[in-house]
Amino acid sequence: MASSINSRKPSEIFKAQALIYKHMYTFLDPMCLKWCVEMNIPNIIHNHGQPISLSNLVSILQVPSTKAGNVQRLMRYLAHNGFFEIVTNQDIENEQEEAYSLTVASELLVKGNELCLAPMVEFYFNPTISGSYNQLKKWIYEEDLTLFGVALGSDFWEFLNKNPEHNKLFNDAMASDSKMINLAMKDCNLVFEELESVVDVGGGTGTTAKIICETFPKLKCVVFDRPKVVENLCGNNNLTYVGGDMFTYIPRADAVLLKWILHDFTDKDCIKILEKCKEAVTSDVKKGKVIIIDLVMNKKKDENQITQLKLQMDIGMACLNGKERNEEEWKKLFVEAGFKDYKISPFTELLSLIEIYP
């Protein structure tokens, strides 16, 4: 039987080949980024105070001279992907030498900075976590198991509870992401200004709650998360930590905050969580609401790069039995959970802020 490819123009076939090869080699993107963070290169350049030459970088890294060319290859690729800028450095021998400076992306990988996403890289590229995605074929045939159930032998959250080291990596990663979200929350005064109390469900170690408390000193804030997460954390006059199960009970407050929570779960579970939120919020029409910070899929309005990222995250959430949702899918959840109205506002380039009212 003749192959259907015979009807294609050679130019089409070669373009298709390039697309396949491109995706074959994209595994190098996360591996190079992981290498960069593991070698602490953003901090090295930051501490250097100016663009650092290849020879100086190799010296500080203390790698064999025979690997200097490989360091250069990795740095050039990372620069091509936007993590560094390549500049020309004129050394004392009056020879031109390649040097590297930070970009905004690599500034976000400098450990010790207020805004630092290095913990996200360290968690997601941990071999135990990233290696689970080698089991996609097996997972797709399992009726009920999550990807992590297939790869790790237990539910993701159960796995974290049983593995303190991975649990810490996860909490550190979520805290680093929360600091990015807090940058946007500083412009959300209207969302919180009439509230007297708020519960941050799945609030982790309290990174977001602390910012809310600092911005609104009269606001009482409760961080509600798994007992293993909050058991050794201490609050203050307007910040408290409570351990529990959001499917069973959520502490009462004027508002409930769900940041990066609902996309982890099925529609059925989301409705259960939202029903508990509805029970928790005050009946005061002016105050009572649930505040959701999450993705809203919108292919028609989003740039292609953002759409691709959202689709990638949708696959990631599917592996937890969750999903990313468009506005109609969000609305369906709100209606089925008994809420009367909602409002969606832009939040960051990636996220939206959704207020829903009982």
Rank of each mutant, 00 (worst) to 15 (best):
K289F: 02
F247T: 06
Q305N: 08
Y249I: 12
D267I: 02
T307G: 00
L311P: 01
D245M: 08
K259F: 04
D269G: 02
L295F: 08
I293M: 04
K323A: 14
F265Q: 04
L295H: 05
W260C: 14
L274V: 06
A280H: 09
E324H: 10
L274D: 01
K300Y: 08
N304A: 11
L239H: 06
E324Q: 13
L320T: 03
V242I: 15
T282E: 05
K268T: 13
I292F: 03
G288F: 00
E303W: 08
A253L: 12
T248Q: 15
K323V: 11
H263T: 12
F247W: 06
D302Y: 05
K289W: 04
A280R: 06
L274F: 05
A280S: 15
Q308W: 14
Y249V: 12
L258F: 05
N237M: 06
Q312T: 15
K301V: 11
D314Y: 05
I271C: 02
E324C: 11
E279A: 11
I292G: 00
I273R: 03
H263D: 10
I273F: 07
W260K: 14
D245V: 09
V281K: 00
D254K: 04
T248C: 14
M313T: 13
P251A: 14
Y249L: 12
I306T: 06
D294A: 03
L274I: 05
L320A: 05
G322N: 04
V281N: 00
L257F: 07
I291D: 00
K286D: 13
L311W: 10
G316Y: 04
M246D: 01
K259W: 09
Q305V: 11
I261C: 10
C319L: 06
K286N: 14
V285K: 14
D254H: 08
K301P: 02
N238C: 13
R325V: 02
I293F: 04
K276H: 08
V296F: 02
D302H: 08
L274P: 02
G288R: 00
V285S: 14
K287D: 04
M246N: 03
L320V: 04
L274K: 01
L295A: 02
K299T: 14
D267R: 06
S283K: 11
